[in-house]
Design a protein around this nucleic acid. Structure first.
Lengths: 148, 148
DNA sequence: TATAAAGTCTATAGTGACTAGAGGTTCAAG
DNA sequence: CTTGAACCTCTAGTCACTATAGACTTTATA
């Protein structure tokens, strides 16, 4: 059944990807242009389905569209490039790990704020105070970083 | 020295916040409008500095601007509202924790991809294969979620 | 004091990765 | 044959900024 044909709506359901997003991937050159039927509607095949699954999986892992495009170019190429795919993955792993530790610092501080709110008998919530004064922080998060 | 006056550039350096970003916070109503000098340039005081530090700190903790605005309104208000500040922090903690576990799943899979690349003697990198086929995943990350 | 460099002003457009809407066409079911 | 869902293109909006253009002001040096 490799010659099955999907409408954009069917592809959308199969990949958990919204219809305008599919069209947008096509516009950006990530998803190859499908054929059209007599009424100018997109008709996709198995290859498109696999391509879109690749994109969604990579996006779910946090790769941005530029990285995905790189990976796609590698996958249609020679073996030696796979080292580069490895590098892209490594780079991304590093970013993910950085984000995790930043978020863990945030988690600790939020927990601390909430705890100091609850355990205070006079109901003086310190959430706002802590936010107002960075020096009250338990952790060392960098202020200029873009959040999350 | 509570009557010191800062230019936008000085405030920028003191808070690690770029100049256009400061103006943008003002436009959005997060930072109250400063006075102007004879030449129409913004002049900030200690209060503005504290306000901006509050914003940057909350941003660094991952609060979005709407949440920060809520927090600001609470901070200029009565005690009972502090319970709501607590709720906002709790809500945010929950989101942070969710993000952490998602990222940890990504981390595990990226590490697995990279490892299977390295330990393979024939240098057949599995990064691309794993991305192409979700069923090869070790972890259960949801595809429709927006990444990071 | 003159001038040049740095800083500031407003307004507008661009980023990434979509999402939503308008207004029209085509398809599938009854 | 009609109706309504799905599809088409195009445009604009989202968030939290960032960057640019072109004009004006302040500050530092000669």
């Amino acid at each position: 059944m490799t010659n099955s044909s999907y409408s954009i709506g069917q592809l959308s359901k199969l990949t958990d990807c919204k219809v305008p997003t599919i069209r947008w991937y096509e516009e950006r050159g990530l998803l190859s242009e499908p054929g059209r039927n007599a009424g100018n509607q997109r008709r996709y095949n198995e290859q498109h389905l696999q391509q879109l699954r690749f994109i969604r999986h990579a996006r779910a892992l946090g790769f941005d569209l530029a990285a995905i495009q790189q990976l796609q170019q590698l996958s249609s190429c020679c073996l030696s490039d796979h080292l580069t795919a490895d590098e892209i993955a490594r780079q991304h792993l590093y970013e993910v790990q950085t984000k995790i530790s930043q978020l863990q610092a945030m988690e600790a501080e939020l927990q601390r704020m909430i705890d100091s709110c609850n355990y205070d008998e006079e109901h003086q919530c310190r959430v706002l105070e802590v936010l107002a004064d960075h020096s009250l922080c338990g952790s060392e998060h960098r202020q200029q970083d873009q959040p999350l």
